[in-house]
Design a binder for these strands. Structure first.
Lengths: 351, 351
DNA sequence: TTGTATGCGTTATCAC
DNA sequence: GTGATAACGCATACAA
């Protein structure tokens, strides 16, 4: 590695910003008329509009949003708070959000909360200072202060990913408890007898999946806490491999299947099984969660749970837009809970 | 899938926003004093500051950024333009950016350009309306209008990912041509004789890698265009598998290695080789690009090229901060090209 | 250490 | 159809 350093440009900051007035003078109209043209108001004569538009392009005028927001209190801004950027799960959600927001001429202000309610609260404070017209936030574990700030803001709030017990406003997601239970029941049905659980990060949603897992196994007296391996750190393929080794060590191999809280971990488990020559799915079943693309291409193809990530994002912002448009019209307003569901995708890593 | 719809809240918009004056009245001081407390200016007596602070928390006051930006022309905003959100490459870059920006109390405004210079130009126009203090943008393929808007804005601009020929301001990245050439040379050195190339998306950087590939093979008379398979669509594991089949069909199997423009494609190729019982690396060599985590866990472990994605993001914003701080001090300013380099990581999918 | 006057660039509102 | 005026909420510059 080497650097090719050269001399900096040393740009000068003192670039006077162009305003409506500059354009107005050039086009021989009042600033107000320019404003009307910029905002594409109907009642401007064609020739005037043309004169203004050429002035705008010739000068390279760009409207000042801060002034506009201040004067009109319309920001065209949606705030989005997610716990992680380095997770396909959230990049898919984000795509869903952007794909609706951008064509509607809205901006997205994105905050990474790093799975911390404290950081989240700080982000919310910052966000609300920008007068967003809506907020999309992950899950329902906000601090009390955060929740009341959001509620007090008076703008539509969508809590996504998770079915939350006491939604602030809109809620879009699915029950991770049910999903965890469904996976576990499926493993039981495939006659695995000694089923373990591997989890990392252990945020609310992961804990719910674990709870679903435990509830199913408890009911049939099949729950053994030795087979539950969790860790607060972030998950990764490498972590999956490590946790699998821990599971095998702790149970002395007395385990014939594992439900991993996500596909990354499961991929690590699969890799480890290959290395240790453990036959999957005959001797050992592996199930992941999320159905990332790689799951279908693993060796053997990974059983997992498919969830509508893109849709959670896109529906969230659609509902927010509904609220924005029909704010005072309760009849036209939309539902405040949408279950995006989940689907078991059983491939070759389980029987 | 099913929905649990219930009755909406129907929030009222008419929430009067709290201002400095409200706090000032409550704390029995002037608005200016409140402003000083909010901005943590030194010269405010402790008891006054406390009175103001309690008033702020009691009322739940949140400063209006638009007004602040308008009055001070300091936005604490960095604009970031990337071509894709659903690509680990960029989520790592983003982490690098956020990890520096947020602790420095800066916001990031993120735009997805979808690999389109037209969308990019539109995004730039929108962005500049928000008075950002710096801009991070991918590569150097902006439209003429985009480039001049950026230059005219007078704020630091960092073009990242790629070594660009005529940088607007700061440039951080590496030569994809050199990287492509290095991979190809390595395959040649491992005595692969009939090397192919598989590429999707074919943006500037991918084309550069291909050019490097071609230059090395041409030099030794080993370039056969039949072995170059490219497609403009997005890449994915599935696409890698499909393109590999196409490569095999077009060359009638007369090919003993392939350089894939990224790891997703390479993973698809590997999967296909397994299915077709083609021995990797003995009969067929596979090399990817980017070194995503999964590469090391593929079967066999994937040879690839490691690049400093996180660093491209973090250095970019660090340099922008340098520019912001030392704007008028040319001596203290930083270099305007930084080569973040690359590294061949040869694993088991090549000899 | 604190307060007052003024302006930032835009839009709402009302004249013309 | 177009223009004048007064906010919007805050920070700069200066006065006290």
């Amino acid at each position: 590695m080497f650097n090719n350093n050269s001399i900096p440009m040393g740009k000068s900051q003192g670039v006077k910003r162009l305003t409506l007035k500059d354009v107005a003078e050039k086009a021989q109209v009042s600033p107000m008329t320019v404003s009307r043209v910029v905002n594409e108001f109907a009642g401007v004569r064609a020739d005037v509009r043309n004169r203004v538009n050429t002035a705008i392009t010739e000068l390279g005028y760009i409207p000042n949003r801060s002034a506009s927001v201040l004067a009109s209190s319309k920001s065209k801004l949606i705030g989005v708070l997610i716990p992680s950027l380095s997770n396909v799960v959230f990049s898919d959600v984000l795509r869903g959000i952007y794909d609706i927001a951008i064509p509607a001429n809205y901006q997205v202000l994105l905050f990474n909360t790093h799975y911390s309610p404290i950081e989240e609260e700080r982000a919310i404070r910052t966000l609300l200072g920008q007068s967003p017209e809506g907020v999309i936030i992950t899950g329902g574990e906000q601090t009390g202060a955060a929740k009341s700030m959001l509620a007090a803001s008076g703008v539509p709030i969508a809590q996504i990913m998770d079915k939350v017990e006491d939604p602030i406003d809109i809620n879009i997601g699915f029950s991770h408890f049910e999903a965890g239970a469904a996976v576990t029941q499926s493993l039981v049905d495939q006659s695995y007898k000694k089923i373990g659980f591997i989890g990392a990060r252990m945020d609310r949603r992961t804990c719910e999946r674990l709870a679903g897992f435990e509830s199913v196994l408890s009911a049939i007296n099949g729950l053994d806490k030795k087979r539950v391996i969790t860790i607060p750190q972030a998950s990764s393929v490498a972590m999956g491999a490590a946790l699998f080794r821990e599971l095998m060590a702790k149970t002395e191999g007395d385990c014939d299947a594992v439900f991993c809280c996500n596909d990354d971990l499961a991929l690590g488990v699969l890799h480890e099984c290959n290395k240790m020559q453990i036959k999957v799915p005959e001797k050992f079943g592996v199930c992941g969660f999320n159905d990332i693309e790689m799951a279908a291409y693993a060796q053997p193809a990974l059983s997992t749970v498919s969830v509508n990530r893109y849709k959670m994002g896109s529906r969230a912002i659609e509902l927010i837009f509904n609220r924005i448009r029909h704010d005072d019209d309760t009849l036209l307003a939309s539902p405040n809970y949408i279950n995006t569901g989940f689907e078991l995708v059983m491939r070759d890593s389980t029987r």
